[in-house]
């Protein structure tokens, strides 16, 4: 009798294990798709920023007659984003665009009239808002990847991950130039 009871419990545990494996497998699929979705959600914001730029450049052109180089750099970076192929190239183009925009906003400091322009203020606020949201979504993307990679290495998930060839994903990496210390010089 004891043997039969043990057999029944083992069968139940086996059933439980199968369901558990299914749950883990489905969890990996969901995590993978979450990562893809979070990546695409960044793209949505990048596209919004891309669409806002022509309006910003148009407003700036009226005031910044002597800063054609800065404006051209923004235009060029924008077109690079458009023509970039592959993830790596796109990433570089987006980073370049972020840099040129930062330069543009720094140069704007020299143009009080432009800074006071309502259209410029609205557009620059909108772009800053999008930049903040992009940063948030990059963090979210990295959080998703970290959860996924952690699961890949945890037991018992690692068994399922290896059995079904779930691979590690890469985190969003910052441009090495941005890791350097910023030089602050208060000397006149």
């Amino acid at each position: 009798m004891t043997g039969l009871i043990a057999l029944g419990i083992i069968l139940l545990l086996l059933l439980g294990t199968i369901i558990y494996v299914v749950i883990i497998y489905n969890g990996f699929v969901a995590l993978k798709n979450n990562i893809e979705q979070n990546w695409s959600n960044i793209d949505v914001l990048l596209k919004q920023r891309y669409d806002e730029l022509p309006k910003l450049i148009k407003v700036c052109e009226g005031y910044m007659q002597h800063e054609q180089k800065t404006l051209e750099a923004v235009v060029k970076a924008r077109s690079m984003v458009n023509s970039a192929q592959g993830e790596e190239q796109k990433l570089q183009a987006q980073n370049a665009l972020t840099d040129t925009l930062k330069s543009l906003f720094m140069v704007v400091e020299r143009y009080p009239d432009l800074k006071a322009d309502a259209g410029f203020r609205q557009l620059s606020n909108r772009i800053s808002e999008i930049e903040d949201q992009i940063a948030d979504r990059r963090e979210l993307y990295n959080a998703s990847v970290t959860i996924y990679n952690t699961r890949l290495e945890q037991f018992p998930d690692v068994v399922i991950a290896r059995a079904f060839n779930f691979d590690r994903r890469e985190l969003w990496k910052i441009d090495p130039a941005h890791r350097q210390d910023v030089e602050v010089n208060f000397q006149p």
Binding site: Y20, L31, D132, D136, E139, L140
Partner: peptide, 24 residues
């Protein structure tokens, strides 16, 4: 299993900032 799935769902979802919540 319902509670196990709920636990994994909570663990597997990263926390968003409210200003940048995406649909879903």
């Amino acid at each position: 299993f319902y509670f196990l799935r709920l636990k994994r769902r909570v663990e597997n979802t990263p926390t968003s900032k409210i200003r940048s919540v995406a649909m879903g």
